[in-house]
Amino acid sequence: MEAAIVFYGLSFFMTVLSLGVLFNPNPIMSALYLVLTMIGVSLVFFMLDAGFLAGVQLIVYAGAVLVLFVMVIMLFDLKREVYTFSRGFFTRLLKVFTGVVFLIILVKSFFLVPETKELLNSSTQMTTKNLAGLLFTEYIFVFELLGLLLLAVAIGAVALSRIKGGTHAE
């Protein structure tokens, strides 16, 4: 019962905060609302006994990714971007149209699978230790490959920042 109250309270606040992300005209404020939403998500993970995921959510998303967002926001000439993306009758119509389509898909998909089912293997407790064990035994190949992926992308990002014409070529 308490868990349900906490969950619905959290969900309510998260919905409000994510609406704040969408409707706030100042992008920095949007980013700050996003931090609060991320913290809410990590609390939900914590309630689901996924302590590791909660921690990762806090460290990676609320910490690193958001700092990156704010930095990128500062780098761009936002007034011009806002102007380019939010004028014109057709653009507005397109936005409303896509929104309606996605809403229909969402509602439809709820009716597509009406019954709720127990998760498979829900009895096994996924602790951080178990997770680490799995990562370094069963999933060692993917884990190492993700390391390679990050390296490739890091070098690629540096290369991209030095391309001919820069990132904002005319």
Binding site: A152, V153, L160, I163
Partner: peptide, 17 residues
Amino acid sequence: MMSLCLYILVAMSMELK
């Protein structure tokens, strides 16, 4: 892994626009 490398490679062309 394949796609991310390719996205970057596409942008690295000499041609600008």
